[in-house]
Measured scan of single mutants.
Amino acid sequence: TETREFDNEEEARKEAERLRRKGQDVQIRKKGNRWELRRT
């Protein structure tokens, strides 16, 4: 599992969408005042 953190939700969602188009399974969750993007 690979995780990346983003400062805002929009960036996290854009990156998640990009990875999903490549066929990756991605989850986003709020972590304090940041957003965590998890690739499984």
Results as ranks from 00 to 15, higher is better:
37 L>W: 02
2 E>R: 11
15 E>I: 05
32 G>Y: 00
27 Q>P: 00
15 E>K: 02
37 L>F: 00
29 R>M: 13
16 A>F: 12
10 E>K: 08
8 N>P: 01
9 E>W: 15
20 R>P: 00
13 R>G: 04
15 E>Y: 08
7 D>M: 07
6 F>H: 02
4 R>G: 05
8 N>K: 05
18 R>Y: 09
15 E>D: 02
22 K>E: 13
34 R>H: 12
35 W>I: 01
20 R>I: 07
30 K>E: 03
10 E>T: 08
27 Q>M: 11
33 N>E: 10
31 K>S: 08
40 T>L: 13
26 V>D: 01
38 R>I: 15
38 R>P: 00
35 W>P: 03
25 D>R: 12
32 G>E: 05
29 R>T: 13
30 K>Y: 04
6 F>P: 01
25 D>S: 13
22 K>T: 12
1 T>Q: 11
16 A>M: 12
1 T>L: 12
31 K>W: 03
39 R>T: 15
20 R>N: 04
7 D>L: 07
4 R>Y: 14
36 E>D: 00
25 D>K: 12
28 I>Y: 04
8 N>L: 06
17 E>T: 09
37 L>G: 03
15 E>L: 04
37 L>D: 04
32 G>L: 02
18 R>S: 08
14 K>D: 09
39 R>Q: 14
19 L>I: 04
24 Q>M: 14
14 K>T: 11
21 R>E: 09
40 T>E: 08
26 V>Q: 01
10 E>W: 13
30 K>P: 05
28 I>Q: 01
3 T>H: 09
16 A>R: 04
28 I>G: 01
32 G>T: 00
30 K>V: 05
9 E>Y: 15
13 R>A: 08
27 Q>Y: 13
39 R>N: 14
35 W>G: 02
17 E>K: 09
12 A>N: 00
15 E>T: 05
1 T>E: 12
19 L>Y: 07
6 F>Q: 00
32 G>I: 00
2 E>T: 12
1 T>W: 15
39 R>A: 15
17 E>V: 08
16 A>N: 00
2 E>G: 11
39 R>I: 15
31 K>I: 14
12 A>H: 00
6 F>S: 01
39 R>W: 15
8 N>Y: 05
28 I>K: 01
16 A>G: 06
40 T>M: 13
35 W>F: 04
21 R>N: 09
